[in-house]
Amino acid sequence: MNQDLTQQWLTEIQTIKEQMAFLQHERDAAWESAQKWRQLYNTEAEQRRTDAQLSQQAIASLKADLHKLQGLETGTLEAGTTVKAIQQEIDQLKSVEDLQAKLIAVIKERDRLLQALKTEQDNHAQSRNSLTTALGDAIDSLTRERAVAAEQGKRE
């Protein structure tokens, strides 16, 4: 009887050891998966930060160009000088056709800058949505893995 009880305890201990090894393996796999997702998220986030920084620089450059076109440049020219510079540029135009050509060029540049700004805004919104989706997927995946591990732990 004692030997049967001892054998039963040894079997139980062995079963628990196997369960522990399985659960440790599952935990390690979940940890590795989480690390992988964290690394992917960090890489993507770094890329988005870089893109955002480049976009901010482009926007600042576009704003500076827009201010120059509008005659609102501050700090480098006095208010009278800006009007004077614009007037000199207008005086160089010899005909109505020259004026029309200059106006068309300015309007095209404005439209190009507006399109570039819209594209940057769209890219930013898409990046934000992609990152949100990726983060949600990672959380869902980790939750599922934990649920499966917990369910397997209950069965054993």
Rank of each mutant, 00 (worst) to 15 (best):
R146S: 11
L103K: 06
Q88A: 07
L54R: 11
Q53D: 15
V106T: 11
Q88Y: 03
L40H: 10
Q70W: 05
R128T: 13
Q3A: 15
N123M: 13
T133V: 06
H25W: 06
D91H: 03
Q88D: 07
W31G: 00
T43Y: 03
T143F: 08
K108H: 06
S61Q: 11
K154C: 10
T50P: 02
E32N: 08
S130P: 00
I104W: 04
E109H: 05
W9L: 15
K108Y: 04
T15M: 15
I104A: 07
N2I: 14
F22Q: 09
D111E: 13
A116E: 03
D65I: 02
L117Q: 08
H25C: 09
E78P: 01
L99R: 06
Q3I: 14
T43W: 02
A29N: 04
D91Q: 05
L142F: 08
A150C: 10
S127M: 10
K154M: 12
S55E: 12
Q88W: 02
R27V: 02
K36C: 00
L114G: 01
E120C: 09
E120G: 13
G80S: 14
A134K: 01
A149L: 06
W31N: 01
S33T: 01
L131R: 03
W31P: 00
L62T: 06
S61Y: 08
E18I: 06
A105M: 01
L113S: 04
E44V: 03
L93P: 00
Q70V: 02
L54Q: 12
I107M: 12
S130H: 07
T119K: 06
L131N: 04
